[in-house]
Amino acid sequence: MRLGRLVLYVRDVEATIGFYEKHFGYKAERLDGDRIVELVAPDGGVNLMVHPAGKGQKMGQVLVKLVFDVENVEAFCAQSSAKGLEFGSIHQADGYQFANAKDPSGNSISISSRAFGK
């Protein structure tokens, strides 16, 4: 058994799809009549299910953070900045680096070299 999908509740479905396609290489799969758009991970990782948020849901106030494994945090931050995504400060942890940002709906995201031990 493995975790295969994660649902993101968002206000702007198209902005969210574009964000994850542009910055993280996901590809949108749409099924006729389905309001959920599945973003397929470029490397066989966890897919993201983009779901329109209900009126009562508050954006960015959940206890989840999406962490993307990148080998070189500094280089990824520079590439992302050139495409309009600004990460916060790069933090040095115990043997790896990470940096944080938010997607268009205020969901917390992070890039981390932890998986690479750097």
Rank of each mutant, 00 (worst) to 15 (best):
K22T: 14
L31V: 15
P42V: 03
P42M: 02
R30T: 12
V37M: 06
G44H: 09
V37L: 05
L48E: 04
M49F: 12
E38C: 13
G25N: 03
G25D: 08
E29W: 11
Y20V: 02
R35G: 02
D43G: 11
I36S: 07
G33V: 03
E21D: 04
R30P: 05
K22G: 00
D34A: 11
K27D: 07
G45T: 05
A28T: 04
M49H: 14
N47A: 12
G44Y: 11
K22Q: 14
Y26P: 03
P42F: 05
E29F: 12
V46C: 08
G25A: 00
D32G: 07
K27P: 00
E29S: 10
V46R: 02
A41T: 06
R35D: 09
K27V: 14
D34K: 10
F24P: 02
G44W: 14
E38I: 14
Y20D: 07
F24E: 00
L31A: 15
P42Y: 03
A28N: 04
K27C: 09
A41C: 15
G33P: 10
K27I: 09
H23P: 03
V40F: 09
E29R: 15
L48S: 09
V46N: 03
E21A: 11
L31E: 15
H23C: 01
L39W: 08
Y20G: 01
V37G: 05
P42H: 07
E21L: 00
A28C: 08
I36C: 11
E29Y: 12
H23A: 00
V40G: 05
G44C: 12
Y26K: 00
Y26V: 00
M49D: 13
I36E: 13
K22C: 09
N47R: 10
D34T: 05
F24G: 01
I36F: 05
D43W: 09
R35M: 12
G44V: 08
R35C: 04
H23Y: 10
G33L: 07
L39C: 11
M49T: 00
L48H: 07
E38M: 14
P42W: 06
